[in-house]
Design a binder for these strands. Structure first.
Lengths: 232, 232
DNA sequence: TCCGAAAATTGAGATATATCAATTATTACT
DNA sequence: AGTAATAATTGATATATCTCAATTTTCGGA
């Protein structure tokens, strides 16, 4: 166990100020580390299911996960992709620990399960941790609003443009990247059918907005893509 | 000012355990009451706008408000209706105080504006308040997921059924009620055009699932309506 | 390296929902 | 109480998106 401790002291998230661990004290780290488990997930494997209760907070150490809402008619809607050193979706802590969304590994991943009770102890022990937790909820709210606006108001072109820009800006931090997720995942991220996703991608390719070859993606005209994302 | 104090000690919300004020101490009440303003809103008047920052938390004392997301093409999507003794949507407290949604009075309403700094002081002063605040966020998350599932996966019939059941179960607490909101509002609550809303309502009326005459609504077959809400 | 399975693309047709336009009902104001 | 303005209904048509089916491409294992 001990050998994974340094990983928990993530630099990535303190930079992006999204992660709760950013500014914990040495003692708090140790306490959480003593109350964690580490688990490996194969690509596609479910990490947790919506509607169930969780005893843990899940923190991604390696790989990539998707957080999604399951509908009947086995359709899913991906809310966000999660990279290492970020929490997956929070269960209803300080309440019934219910999970509102499902999560699965997109590629081979490793996660750290933090005991909810230990986490709550940390939160309540030092006042400084409360604002950090609230910030987490704030950014979740903001993301949620964006996703909702996306599906309600935007047409297919805009939704795919949005999804691509999300990958560029928030996931791969580069205009060219190897698309780790499948076209179906991309479709669920954009909230549409995989066939339509395919069509829009070829359209963008023809329009020379993107260059796409299998999993290799390059954004050629980001400005235009941003325009499409906004106005459809 | 003093004469409104008792209203802040809401019974309604402590019952439903949604409201932060439920279990505040006498002292905390007094502190918040000293840092509040009360404002009246006419029907239709905007209470706050998404994308702006707020110095206050807004707590509804009288009337009814809608919390909604504004799209371009001046279409709105109503996230929830808010009744007296509930908070409207939370700004990003402990952060930049940004508001992610807009709000407007549906009917003549009165709101209590609570200074955010005072609120934060109360939250941090007593550990007992933290779980209550987190619970607020949890229920917001849950509501959000429901709304998202609603627009993504459900057809028009199911969305209207959902909206009607929401009015019955969460707003009016009765199978027959006077619909305070307009058909347009109902449409925005169900996430569709007002014309389609009208059509579905007449359809439900013809099927004798509901009885509707102007603003007077009565649910005749709730079981069936619930079935429609689930399976479309 | 080849083969079968899975994933991705493409096309045609079906369907749900929005939009536009016309009519009717309701509300508010003088 | 009468009338203009607004809201609600209804119908016809347009459009976006999905679904089904047929290929084609990619990928993983023997």
């Amino acid at each position: 166990m001990k050998n994974y401790t340094p990983v928990l002291k993530c630099k990535a998230c303190s930079l992006r100020s999204r992660c709760f661990f950013g500014g914990l004290t040495e003692k708090e780290y140790e306490f959480l580390t003593a109350n964690k488990k580490e688990v490996d997930f194969k690509a596609g494997e479910t990490i947790y299911k919506q509607g169930t209760k969780s005893k843990y907070l899940v923190f991604l150490l390696d790989g990539m996960a998707k957080v999604y809402i399951e509908g009947d008619n086995n359709k899913n809607f991906i809310l966000e992709l999660v990279k290492p050193f970020q929490f997956l979706d929070m269960p209803a802590i300080f309440d019934d620990d219910m999970l509102f969304r499902s999560s699965a590994a997109v590629i081979k991943s490793r996660a750290c399960l933090i005991d909810i009770e230990a986490f709550k102890t940390i939160v309540l022990k030092d006042k400084k941790n409360v604002p950090k937790l609230i910030k987490h909820y704030n950014s979740a709210q903001s993301r949620f609003s964006d996703r909702l606006i996306n599906v309600i108001y935007k047409n297919m072109e805009a939704r795919i443009a949005d999804a691509l820009l999300y990958l560029v800006n928030d996931i791969f931090f580069s205009r060219s990247f190897n698309l780790t997720i499948s076209r179906s995942d991309l479709a669920e991220l954009a909230g549409m059918s995989k066939e339509s996703t395919s069509r829009i991608l070829t359209q963008f390719k023809t329009q020379e907005i993107i260059l796409i070859n299998g999993k290799e993606v390059e954004i050629l005209n980001k400005k235009y893509l941003e325009q499409i994302a906004r106005f459809g």
